[in-house]
Simulated scan of single mutants.
Amino acid sequence: MSSRHTQFMPTGTVYGTLLNFRDEFDALAPQMSAPPYKAPPQAPVLYVKTANTWSPHDAAIAVPADVPAVEVGASIGMVVGADGDIEGFVPMNDLSVPHASFFRPPVKFKCLDGFLGIGPALRDAQEVADPAGFRMEVRINGELKQTLDFATLVRPARQLLADVGEFMTLAHGDVLMLGCGAGRPLAHVGDRIEISAPGFETLVNTLVGEGA
Rank of each mutant, 00 (worst) to 15 (best):
R123N: 06
G183I: 12
G88L: 07
F102E: 09
I76T: 07
R139W: 01
G117S: 08
L178Y: 00
G114H: 07
L95G: 03
D163F: 10
P91F: 03
L148T: 10
S75G: 08
L160M: 12
M78V: 08
T152L: 13
G173H: 09
V72L: 05
F134W: 06
P106F: 07
R123C: 09
I118V: 15
L112E: 02
P105M: 13
R184W: 00
I86F: 05
G181A: 15
A171V: 10
L153I: 07
G181E: 10
M136R: 04
G181K: 07
V154R: 14
D149H: 11
R192F: 01
F115H: 02
K145G: 02
I76L: 12
I86H: 04
G165Q: 08
F150A: 06
L161V: 07
L186H: 13
V128S: 03
A100H: 15
V164M: 05
P106D: 09
G73V: 05
L161T: 04
Q126K: 15
V154A: 02
R135T: 11
T152V: 09
G142R: 02
L186N: 09
G181L: 03
C111W: 02
F102A: 12
A171Q: 15
A121E: 09
A197I: 03
D94H: 02
I195W: 01
P156R: 10
G88R: 07
D113R: 13
V90D: 01
A132T: 15
L176E: 06
D149Y: 09
G81E: 06
V107D: 14
V164H: 04
E127K: 13
F109A: 15
D94C: 08
A157L: 04
I86N: 00
G190W: 03
R158H: 15
R135M: 11
G142W: 01
L186C: 07
F103C: 05
V79N: 00
Q126G: 10
I86A: 05
K145L: 07
P105Y: 10
V97P: 05
M168D: 09
G179Y: 06
I118L: 09
S96I: 05
R158G: 09
A151V: 11
D94A: 13
R104E: 14
G181V: 13
E194D: 15
G183C: 11
I86L: 02
P91S: 04
A100C: 07
V138E: 03
V107P: 00
R155M: 12
L186T: 09
A162D: 14
E137G: 11
A100Y: 13
R135H: 11
A74E: 06
L170V: 12
F167T: 10
D83G: 12
G183R: 14
A197L: 13
G165F: 08
A125R: 13
A129K: 13
V79I: 15
V164W: 01
A121P: 06
P105F: 10
D83T: 09
D94E: 11
L122C: 07
H172E: 15
L176V: 06
D174T: 12
H99G: 13
V79S: 05
Q126C: 11
A151H: 11
G179P: 04
E143L: 11
G114K: 00
R184E: 05
D191F: 01
P120S: 10
G173L: 02
P131R: 01
F103P: 01
H99C: 12
S75A: 15
I195G: 02
K145C: 11
M136D: 01
E166R: 14
M177R: 04
H99D: 10
C180D: 02
D130W: 07
F89M: 07
A171I: 09
V189R: 13
V80C: 08
